[in-house]
Write a protein that binds this DNA or RNA. Sequence first.
DNA 1: AGCACGATTAACT
DNA 2: GTTAATCGTGCTC
Length: 198
Amino acid sequence: MGASDRLERSFFNRPTLLVARELLGKHLVRMLDGQRLSGIITETEAYIGEEDLACHCKAGRTPRTQVMYGQPGLAYVYFTYGKHWLLNFVTEAENSPAAVLIRAIIPTAGLEHIAARRGHQPPARWTDGPGKLCQALEIDGALNAYDLCQPEAVLSIENGAPIPDSSVTTGPRVGLNSVPEPWKSKPWRFLARLPDNS
DNA sequence: AGCACGATTAACT
DNA sequence: GTTAATCGTGCTC
């Protein structure tokens, strides 16, 4: 795949639930020291606006949330639990704060580089969590507010085989233990079951 | 300045 | 299934 397959900003400038759904099956591409690392996105979650009490934007504009008020197609990368980086993509129009969390990918390229960081676990556990995939692809705070739609981007999304609705399941977002209803139970998590999965 | 807590992970019972 | 680890963020005093 070449640069022509890279998603344009218009892809992200749409309702967040639609973006979260359509990101399933797309390729997350990370250029690292001239090497191409990539994986197929299989799990996402939507975080939508200041009213969504699970979204960091419930606090309004702060140094951390500022990027979510920016233009669609930026990366929102934040640190949590004193240990883990989590990767999101900003969605919707500027000043409409929302993002999609990338929760899991299936590695497709650069496996030896991924293994260098995640090889202490079996391959099936290399990128099956939002913190794990950031570790695998060396994604951290240096990429916060990074524009995925710029030329020669070191982090971007490319088109992939579409995932049919019959292979998509939804459910409540993960890890919202103390978030009040109805936000806690909103079915804003999207999972893809790929053909070669069982 | 101090505090409670988190969009998690890995190890342990 | 349960829990420690670990520190930036946002809120209160």
